[in-house]
Design a protein around this nucleic acid. Structure first.
Lengths: 135, 135
DNA sequence: GTTAGTACTAACTTTGAGAAAGTGCCAACC
DNA sequence: GGTTGGCACTTTCTCAAAGTTAGTACTAAC
């Protein structure tokens, strides 16, 4: 309640979302989708539906705990859909919602660009380290 | 799809960059630009040149330590340009490189989209919390 | 009957984020 | 003329996350 009072609002009482503002709820969601594992989970799920452990293998390096935590946050934010069959052994399928697909599309653009520019980044790093070592 | 200890390379010996691969150097850079303060620093700097403390005020909530750390990583990756005058008091100006401007452009697209979709996110959260409370 | 797989959670350890204070110097204020 | 504040950081310390390991309750395959 106090948090809401702190949020910036327009003439019609609607919240003005601004990631540069400390109290804005968009910061939290931004962190969910741009966190280390958030990005990778969204990108992997943009390839299609995955079961929990299949997704874990696709996103190489993620621990079970972090993947579960990440997926729960993304599910709550309406980015990821979770469908569980309470059979034995359990079967849980994860997929993107329309919102999640949009997020993944933006992230994919960033990733494609970065992967293409990585040689420039590596060059910049080498140059930086050289000038540091010389000084 | 197995974990790769070494970097993947193509027929010409060039590195194939892939964020989904654990050992890929692109993951590190990705984390620099999509980290909590990395995103916000890039977005703020896309507005123009800032001095250290002015940038710190613009990116509300960031500590001096984290801003310095973030800027150093982005400078090494060739995203941010640092120009220091060794006067007293010191004057250090930060700005984006062409690479950084491209990164900021991608991030800006994501932010604009997210800020616009935040009402949907808030709704999804409320619905999620309701169904949890009921169960 | 041992091993592996399913989708997790709980307990524990390690890492890194964030807060606070230090640095060395100057300008303005009372 | 002593205090406060600003500049651009760095250092130290603390605590909350991240990451690791083990456990669950059961089945299917070897």
């Amino acid at each position: 309640m106090e948090d809401q009072a702190a949020l910036a609002r327009d003439d019609h009482g609607q919240i003005i979302f601004d990631v540069l503002a400390q109290a804005c709820p968009s910061r939290e969601t931004m962190e969910h989708i741009t966190s280390r594992w958030g990005i990778l989970a969204l990108i992997a799920l943009s390839e299609g539906t995955y079961r929990f452990n299949a997704l874990r293998r696709r996103v190489s390096g993620v621990s079970e705990k972090m993947l579960a935590q990440t997926l729960q946050a993304l599910e709550r934010d309406g980015m990821v859909h979770r469908e569980a069959q309470v059979t034995i052994p359990p079967k849980v399928e994860y997929s993107l919602t329309p919102l999640g697909r949009e997020a993944a599309r933006h992230l994919y653009g960033l990733i494609e660009w970065l992967e293409g520019e990585m040689p420039s980044v590596m060059d910049a790093r080498a140059a930086h380290d050289r000038s540091r070592a010389g000084a």
